[in-house]
Design a protein around this nucleic acid. Structure first.
Lengths: 136, 136
DNA sequence: TTGAATTCCTACCTTATGACTCGGATTTAC
DNA sequence: GTAAATCCGAGTCATAAGGTAGGAATTCAA
């Protein structure tokens, strides 16, 4: 959905109906997904007829990490690495904890380094490659 | 559990009852977990009274990645990156697919680089540090 | 040779979560 | 005024994680 809005960025709003059609997802489902994105200010909404949604910032200023964390929560592989949780007392756990932390760090590293702009670039690269493949 | 067996490595077998006590987990639960590890040959089992389990290889030759994949499956964040699944047809999906692949790669990178020996070393380092903290 | 300790096996239960639907209230362009 | 859209709260459904129960098979040790 955010990719769809990113492609459209700069040319007005897009309704859930259109996104649903493009992505073969139900409108009602997308409604659920976009609520937290709106509340977090990643998208602007315009109500009423001819309304819709648009990114509130440029695609290069929105990372995949922001989006995923908003929709999926802190993305922690284990409770004990979530900030605010009480530290576990057993030494063994702390050993596995450092593993969880390293995993989490590496995931965040990847998703925070990819912006919607990167996805758009990848998309056009893939499209171009497909065209060339067909001509061989 | 595997950490527990690794600490014990070289000094005979260890029963699930002991592991359960040390890790505050139920014996029956551990039974479930160890079955695939045994079938995959990571641990040897000795049945009957005074029986138990032991690692089948040295701690430095068992990675956390092996263990996790055995217990949790291919560890893919999305179906479309699982080997053998039919490729999805929509270009948009392929763009997100490359993201999943990068995430998966980075996770495997981390967990395949950590062996049980590393965990033991970390454990003793933490223990030492705790002792020092108490003396301050 | 008996009994206790232990692994092994199959099946079940419970709870949380992700994915998704439904019905309706509200807003706004035309 | 009405159709097109966003908003909102609740409910459904399938699946998986985490865990339990009961008992059969194996082996040591007294």
């Amino acid at each position: 959905m955010m990719f769809e809005l990113a492609k459209r960025h700069g040319s007005g709003t897009m309704s859930l109906k259109d996104i649903a059609k493009n992505q073969e997802l139900s409108e009602t489902y997308l409604e659920q997904l976009i609520a937290p994105l709106r509340k977090a200010g990643l998208v602007n909404s315009i109500r009423g007829a001819q309304g819709g949604y648009e990114l509130s910032k440029k695609p290069e200023d929105i990372t995949v990490g922001e989006i995923i964390r908003l929709l999926e929560g802190p993305l922690a592989p284990s409770d004990c690495v979530v900030d605010g949780e009480p530290e576990c007392t057993k030494a063994e756990y702390c050993v596995t904890r450092t593993i969880w932390e390293r995993i989490m760090g590496s995931i965040n590293n990847v998703i925070d380094s990819i912006t919607l702009r990167d996805m758009i670039n990848d998309y056009y690269k893939l499209e171009k490659k497909k065209g060339e493949d067909r001509n061989e």
